[in-house]
């Protein structure tokens, strides 16, 4: 038990030092990076590690006779959570959302410290001590609180009332409701029944299994399978069309969606919100190919009225590309991100 706890304590201490160093800037702030596409999982894993670490630290300290009062444990843990949310998570979370997380964690901490009568008494003991002010120290504290709290609250309310400008949050509907059918270059496509005509095996037959077995591998780097090189001169069917789709992508789409399809292209920084990140499991991985076909063909301007807000400069690609080119680009996007499109069944 003790060995386990001391390992946890070391992890916790190292984690805190690293986080503090990265926040203050002693250690480069990208020492431990948030991995793209896995951020939520990573954040939860990190927090779990920290909780384990704190448990270890608290255990070791009480084992060494320096038990840490529950009161301060609760307060410090809450402060840690707030700091973590503010400085660790990037891109930054808006204050309103952080306030929500803060409230929820406050409630959780209260539940923890008041789990049983004894704990609760221990927790409120320091507060009662200050209220009663029996010793010189607590007397001083009581007077200090009496003065500081009204000043702080007055200051906060002044701050809240002074007119200032805050960036309005820009939202975008990620998956607006699609129409039943869409008309592109004079032909009507029913979203439920249309298929990507280039998802074919070398014999030219529609073959989802074949195409899925030739996409890039998931995991760091998302690299192609060594045997499935679209640039192979002999590539036929699916892989050949992937290459053609890639050529179109790198002539038209990467300016915004990025060389690595992560929404960080050359022009991306000028947009708000930034362009869609296809490597995120929440975008194309959740959609059917025909949905993408509709969005690519009609662009931001083709969003239905229910698709508000219209914060999208996505071009209506039917102005620039042929139907075949649009299907090939879609094929490439799924190949390059390693996701399977959703199907209707």
């Amino acid at each position: 038990m003790k060995a386990l706890m001391s390992v946890a304590a070391i992890i916790g201490a190292a984690g805190i030092l690293l986080l503090a160093g990265m926040t203050v800037g002693i250690v480069p702030s990208n020492t431990v990076r948030l991995i793209e596409g896995y951020m939520p999982v990573q954040v939860i894993a990190e927090l779990t590690l920290f909780v384990a670490g704190f448990t270890g630290i608290s255990y070791m300290m009480s084992a060494m006779g320096m038990a840490f009062p529950r009161f301060w444990q609760g307060i410090l843990f809450w402060a840690f959570l707030l700091i973590y949310l503010k400085f660790r998570v990037y891109p930054p979370i808006p204050f309103s959302v952080r306030a929500m997380y803060g409230t929820i964690s406050l409630v959780a901490i209260f539940m923890w410290v008041s789990a049983n009568e004894e704990d609760w008494n221990k927790f409120k003991q320091p507060i009662m001590n200050v209220l009663d002010a029996k010793t010189g120290g607590t007397k001083f504290l009581r007077i200090a609180y009496l003065v500081i709290i009204p000043i702080l609250i007055g200051g906060f309310s002044y701050n809240a009332m002074v007119p200032k400008s805050e960036e309005p949050i820009e939202l975008r509907t990620v998956h607006p409701a699609p129409p039943a059918s869409t008309k592109v270059h004079g032909k009507t496509y029913t979203l439920q029944t249309s298929q990507n005509p280039y998802r074919v095996n070398p014999e030219g037959k529609y073959d989802q299994e074949y195409s899925n077995s030739n996409i890039v591998e998931q995991g760091m780097g998302r690299l192609m399978k060594p045997t499935s090189n679209p640039w192979d001169k002999d590539a036929q069917g699916y892989l050949k069309y992937v290459r053609e789709g890639g050529e179109i992508f790198y002539q038209n789409c990467h300016f915004c969606h990025g060389d690595n399809l992560n929404g960080r292209g050359l022009h991306a920084f000028a947009f708000n919100p930034i362009p869609a990140n296809f490597t995120d499991p929440g975008t194309i991985a959740q959609l059917q190919e025909t949905f993408i076909f509709w969005r690519v063909s009609k662009g931001g301007i083709g969003l239905p009225n229910e698709g508000f807000p219209w914060a999208s400069v996505m071009p209506p690609w039917e102005q620039h590309l042929t139907v075949d080119e649009i299907w090939k680009v879609i094929l490439f996007e799924y190949w390059h991100t390693g996701y399977y499109p959703r199907t209707w069944d």
Partner: peptide, 22 residues
């Protein structure tokens, strides 16, 4: 080679002559 033909070829080209599709 595997990395190159997944990520780089699109701009730098098959022979690395800086003449990829992009």
């Amino acid at each position: 080679k595997r990395v190159y033909f997944t990520k780089c070829v699109w701009c730098h080209g098959v022979d690395g002559a800086g003449d990829g599709p992009g």
